[in-house]
Amino acid sequence: MNLSDNIIEISDLSFKREDRIIYNDINLKVPRGKVTAIMGPSGIGKTTLLRLIGGQLLPNSGKILFNDENIVTASRKSLFKMRRKMGMLFQSGALFTEMSVFDNVAFPIREHTKLPESIINKVVLMKLEAVGLRGAAQLFPAELSGGMARRAALARSIALDPELIMYDEPFAGQDPISMAVIVRLIRELNDALGLTSIVVSHDVEEVLSIADYVYIIANQTVIAQGTPQQLRQEKSEQVIQFMEGRPDGPVPFHFPHQDYKKEMCNNVD
């Protein structure tokens, strides 16, 4: 079967939580073998988008194709089959706290394959070596630093050699060294293992340094897209405000409320 050039194709996707619209007819494509970044201000639903792609949430309308198969209408069985080709690095790492780092990485392999322990042992050590944590194999998540926990979780998410890996805010709360390590790992793993990566983040410089293609999301839709170079040339006020981190602009500093002067005068007896 010839698969399309895009591993993910999202078309006319709308999603709302109670009465709040998160996405309104959004369209987005993730090219195979590339690092695609999804950026935007906090609270606009970037993590929600990853959960929609993973089939953990269902949209109100629209299509999400993974390898040309619609995730939205897939049965639970075929959804699980598709998820075996996906990996996801959660913001918290989401390591199983009662298992060692080794067992965390071995867990998906033990669950989904019938490989003998001797082979599993080698695969796990290879994955841990790739993220620089072979020496921490017997430590427990509580004994790891934030950066190490995220790298261990990364090793677990590539344990089954997925086609797609989704990173949810991989740089959040990391010190500069850990951040540089993770930036390098995302790019190197993508190229060495032939993966496709989706990085959701609002760390502009880190993302632009590794992404092949970038989407900027705001106001429930994609407001800009292109290569990092194209986005640096973008003239839109909203994009410039986000890229340069300006406190005020099209995205207001003040949360919408009644007129300031009027409210202050009302409180004077």
Binding site: R51, G54, R83, R84, M88, F90, E111
Partner: peptide, 8 residues
Amino acid sequence: SSLEMMAI
């Protein structure tokens, strides 16, 4: 959620 994403 991570279990779900691991197809478990």
